[in-house]
Amino acid sequence: MSLKTGPILARRTLLGALASSPLWLGSAWAASQSMKISHQFPGGSIMEGDFRDRLCRMFAADVEKRTRGSLKFSIYPNASLMAPNAQFGALRKGGLDLALMPLSYAAAESPEANIGLMPGLVTSYAQGYGWKSADVGKELTRILGEQGLVVISWIWQAGGVAARGAPVVAPEDVRGLKVRGGSREMDLVLQQAGATIVNLPSNEIHAAMKNGALDAAFTSSTSLMSFRLHDVSRSLTTARSGGYWYMLEPLLMSKTVFERLPKDQQAAIMAVGADLERFALRMARNDDAAVANVYARAGARVVDMDADTLRKWQDMARATAWADFGGRSENCARLLALAEKSVMAL
């Protein structure tokens, strides 16, 4: 060995040992890890667009900053990475890192998930966001954890009804219509009211209403605008004065992926997720008000929900959807009881 090659080999050996050591891997010098965030909503930027896409981009930027670039993220809007209903299973298996999705889309694999869109159970943002620290939220977090999920941000959205014809206000208004409800439990209520159910994710509503396969659709205020349903609707029922359709649409992370990360990165992810809940609440409320103006400008008839009509839907939901959900499993029964308890505590 020459005098030159000896020191070179020694230096390479030392660098190789450092690169594989825990100290090196946990340091700012370690190679950054890239993660994927999937969602079905229109893409935009941090400053403009559907607030759910904006939230994902804000999350990515803030976590990258807090971890000094050791965690980076790629955002896949418009269901460009995978179909909306495939996200939950991919998260559970560790094949997808994060997704912002309606929790009720997970119902095929997790019956308990439909508590996140239980008609008439949550009737205000205060009630919905109160779940996080209440017993019902802790129990839901436990169940999702056992199923391989970590809730990063609790996001609630009120919703309305876009219709190709007359406004859908009272239960009897859906009789004979082809309607999209958004969850199994919402569909049970609509069936009881005489509707024909059409199951599809929110990003497919526009096409179905345009071609006549769908007469009316229940979805969030944000989706009512982002998917341009005002182009194919003649009426809108808003959630400005209250509603029975509140959806939990969290930012979720694969527990398998989350638990591989060092504690400081886990802490950064959870802190940013919690911080963004205030943004989500503000934007959801803004959209509840803005959607009425969007539809009015498009020439649609805009109506609001009143307390008496809300109680009609709630009574029907209690006798159908709530009863069905509570009878599905011990977990479902416990979640429903805790959710009803949270209502009485308000």
Rank of each mutant, 00 (worst) to 15 (best):
E109A: 13
M82V: 11
A61D: 12
V150D: 00
R92F: 00
D50H: 15
S32K: 11
A99N: 11
I115V: 15
L55P: 08
G94F: 11
Q157G: 14
A108I: 07
G95S: 11
A99S: 15
A107D: 04
Y105P: 00
Q127S: 12
M82N: 11
E48V: 14
Q127N: 14
S74L: 07
F41A: 07
A90V: 02
G69Q: 10
K93D: 13
G148E: 05
P84Q: 02
I75C: 10
A126H: 08
A99P: 05
A30S: 15
G130D: 14
E139S: 03
E112G: 04
R164P: 00
D97S: 13
A99H: 04
R66N: 13
I155C: 01
G49P: 01
L140F: 10
L96A: 10
N85I: 13
E109S: 12
S80P: 15
K138F: 07
A163T: 10
P111Y: 03
G148Y: 05
A107M: 08
V63W: 01
K138P: 15
A106I: 06
L96Q: 09
A113V: 03
W131L: 13
N114F: 02
A30D: 07
S32R: 10
G94R: 05
G128S: 12
K36R: 15
G44P: 00
A60S: 14
M47F: 13
G44W: 11
L149G: 00
I75M: 09
R68M: 06
V122Y: 00
K93V: 07
V161S: 06
V122C: 09
I155P: 02
F73A: 04
N114E: 12
S133N: 14
P102F: 05
G89Y: 03
L91R: 01
G89Q: 05
M58R: 15
E48I: 11
G137D: 08
G69S: 12
